[in-house]
Simulated assay, not measured.
Amino acid sequence: MLTEGLAQVHAQARVPAPAPASLDEAGGGVLQLGGRWTADQAPSVEAAAARIAASGARADVTVDLGAVERLDTLGAWVLERTRAEVEAAGGRLAYARVRPEHRTLLGEVTMRGAAPPPPRRLSPPIALLDGLGRQTASAGRQFVVATAFLGEVVAACGRVALRPGSFRGTALVNQLQQMALNGAPIIVLISFLVGGIVAQQGIFQLQRFGAQTFVVNLIGLLILRELGVLLTAIMVAGRSGSAITAEIGSMRMREEVDALKVMGLDATEILIVPRILALMIGLPMLTLIGDLAALAGGGLTAMVYGGLTLDQFLARLQAAVGVHHVTVGLIKAPFMALIIGLIATIEGFAVEGSAESLGRHVTASVVKSIFMVIVLDGLFAVFFAAIDF
């Protein structure tokens, strides 16, 4: 038994220890690696990597891996990290005599890359300016994207006009039903209530001067020129704009848009043109219906709180407003519809493959659409005031 134990001890003593990572200079800018570049030889791996980095700074170096006994993930990551350090210092590092398995491992490490360093903390004023600059640059990029997208839509409309047989009239009618017909009840209700509220508050303020009859002028001009189309556009942006983004985003998640492209179909003509045309046709119709509902609500309130009769209200309204006031609101509607449709479709096509992305882009679609509708209404107000219309 003692003899057998001594034999095993001698046998174990004859097993050589793992060779540490080594580095030899072969001349001519060639570094010869050897030994085991593995996790159990981490100290020697780091020491050899430091020598490679020192030799390769601001020079061209070739690393020969032909004598490397074994290479694992740690050794490959250290080599790639060293190569990045050499290139960052202005040098160049290339590999020679790389075994296929080692090349695969080095490629995998390169694909994954190292974790980026944590961002440097900025002082609050600098952080504020940095955020403002980033938002401004992002807004500029989004404006360029929207302009390019508008060009694609116009080009698609041109192709449809040249080939009327390719126009999908059924899709347009379906979208009109979804956006205009099904949305009319909520537009009528909201407009009626808002018209009544505006008239009530106007009467309470004008009664102080004995001029409550001028509430007809107030609600007539305010609703027909500004409030009617603005309120309708906001409702359409929240209802139809979000639906467009959700529909296109869901198609993106299920790769239906890619399937259309594979089948040789134009996604812009099929998905975007019918929806934008339906918005541009439906929003003026809803605006007119909303104007009538708001005037009805305002007239009812004026008769209840202001003591006006129906004949007095109608006569005063006819004297206060004209056809051009109605035209002002209707002129704005198609442009607002175009803005809503563009933003909704852009956000829909930006959806990625997660429900979180879909919800984020639907929210962005509604917020951006409402913001741009208000901005556009302000620009039109300045324009019509400048031309005295």
Rank of each mutant, 00 (worst) to 15 (best):
T287V: 13
A319K: 14
I281C: 10
Q318M: 11
L317N: 07
A294E: 01
L295S: 04
L300C: 08
A315I: 08
A315F: 08
R316S: 12
I289V: 14
Q318R: 15
L310E: 00
L277P: 02
T309E: 08
A293K: 06
V326M: 07
F313A: 01
L295Q: 03
A320P: 08
A315W: 01
R316I: 04
I289C: 07
V323L: 15
H324R: 14
I289R: 05
D311W: 00
V304K: 12
T301M: 15
G298M: 08
H324G: 04
T327F: 14
M285Y: 07
T301F: 06
L277Y: 01
M285P: 10
G297Y: 06
L314A: 15
V304S: 15
G307K: 03
L314Y: 08
V323G: 14
L288T: 06
L277Q: 03
G299H: 00
L295M: 13
L314F: 10
G290H: 04
L317T: 12
L288N: 05
Q318G: 08
T309H: 07
I289A: 14
M285G: 10
L292Q: 13
H324E: 12
G290W: 03
A293L: 10
A319G: 14
Q318S: 13
A296L: 14
L286M: 13
G306Y: 03
G282W: 01
H325A: 10
T287W: 09
P284V: 04
L292A: 15
A278Y: 07
V323A: 15
Q312W: 06
L308V: 07
L314E: 02
P284W: 07
